[in-house]
Simulated scan of single mutants.
Amino acid sequence: MDDSPGLITTPLTDDLVRGALDLERTARGGLLPHRLPARARAQFGGDEQVAQAESQPSGVRLVFRSRATAVEVDVVRTVVGYRGVPPRPDGAYDLHVDGEPAGRATASGGDLVTVDLDDGSQETVHGPVGTVRFGGLPGREKTVEIWLPYTETTELIALRTDAPVAAAEPSGRRVWLHHGSSISQGSAAESSATAWPALAAAVGGVELVNLGLGGSALLDPFTARALRDTPADLISVKIGINLVNRDLMRLRAFGPAVHGFLDTIREGHPATPLLVVSPILCPAQEDTPGPAAPDIADGQVEFTALGDPSEAALGKLTLRVVREELARIVEERAAEDPELYYLDGLALYGEADAAELPLPDRLHPDGAAHRRMGERFGALAFGPGGPFGGRP
């Protein structure tokens, strides 16, 4: 951590952070953003997957007004790596000035958690505080946004600038609350700001709250309650891929679980536009049930479905089965819920897209595919006639 001369230290307060559902004050005096509230975190049952995902701040950003031309943010990041797999690139911090991309930086230091995929054991090596720096900003009064990385748990320690900082006034834009899997969290995108929900939010002119939870879009009641209790003007839930690749439930349980999830959301948002999105194309699991497992060869990871296609007749879930069931459920419910809508995930990424932009690990879209999905969701959901259409 540097004490840079000539810079003003501004206390990190809740009103400087957007996109988080909870902010934990740490022993260092910093802020740790959470994307699920404390009540939900108390109900994980020790699941490290969801604990890791919700603490990785996809869509969370520092937002403030200032004439500053230089900005520094001290952070302690927690990076998760896997034994035998090359480390991922450092998480990207994207700078936006008055809503436009204006720079990208990374942080050093922090804690490294190494996971052994064979037995699930973990080893943690602690590191120092790191600093994210941006310079050369325009000297005018402006809104500065710093998008935190979706790949790293990020504890915010200090904010320094060369001009005073003030909290930005609320944007007045509609709030879009979105829940989904690792694809919604941003997996394989370049950054949080270039994950498909963030790109779609820019198209729609809305304020994003991203509850994409890698490996953890599992129709959990605590997630449904978090969606129910979070203020929002628009809501979408992308359901399916994690239920299939974790082989979590059968068709008999899936339908009632979807109904219960939607019922809970509707308790807090009885008339809010609510869009149910089915899975994008994943050839490995279209007709083959889970579970799915990572296969590591030459340092590269590919996901393989381990189920037997014939088991779908016995009620095991495939992506094709999930899409059919979601479409049926939404059609039935829409008769009494005119603000409930359905979007086929194949309209975001389908067979032609897979031929042009194949999934690098057979599960997650790359940066180019995220951009395409963001543009398409923006047009289909926020465009004329879309469920989220209308004036931003």
Rank of each mutant, 00 (worst) to 15 (best):
T223K: 00
A224K: 00
R225C: 07
G215E: 12
S216Y: 10
G215D: 06
S236T: 13
S236E: 05
T223V: 15
A202T: 15
P231Q: 03
V237I: 14
G215N: 07
A232D: 04
A202I: 14
I235A: 13
L218K: 14
A226L: 01
A201H: 04
L208E: 07
L248A: 14
A200W: 11
L218H: 14
I241P: 05
L211K: 01
K238L: 08
G215A: 11
G212S: 14
G240V: 03
D233P: 03
R228V: 14
D229Y: 09
L213I: 15
T230A: 02
V244T: 06
L219I: 07
L219P: 13
L213F: 15
V206Y: 08
G240N: 11
A226K: 00
L227Y: 11
I239P: 07
L211I: 13
L211W: 08
V244F: 07
V203Q: 07
N245W: 15
A200C: 10
R225E: 15
N242W: 15
V237K: 11
I239T: 08
N242F: 14
L208D: 02
G204D: 01
A232V: 12
R246G: 15
K238I: 11
G204Y: 11
T230Y: 09
V203W: 00
I235Q: 04
T223F: 00
V203Y: 10
D220E: 08
V206D: 06
I239L: 14
G204H: 07
L227N: 05
P221H: 03
R228H: 02
A217Q: 15
L234G: 13
G214H: 10
L199N: 06
L208P: 08
V203H: 04
G205Q: 10
A202N: 03
R225Q: 08
G215C: 09
A202F: 08
L218R: 12
T223G: 02
T230L: 10
I235W: 10
P231Y: 00
P231I: 01
K238S: 14
V209I: 15
T230E: 02
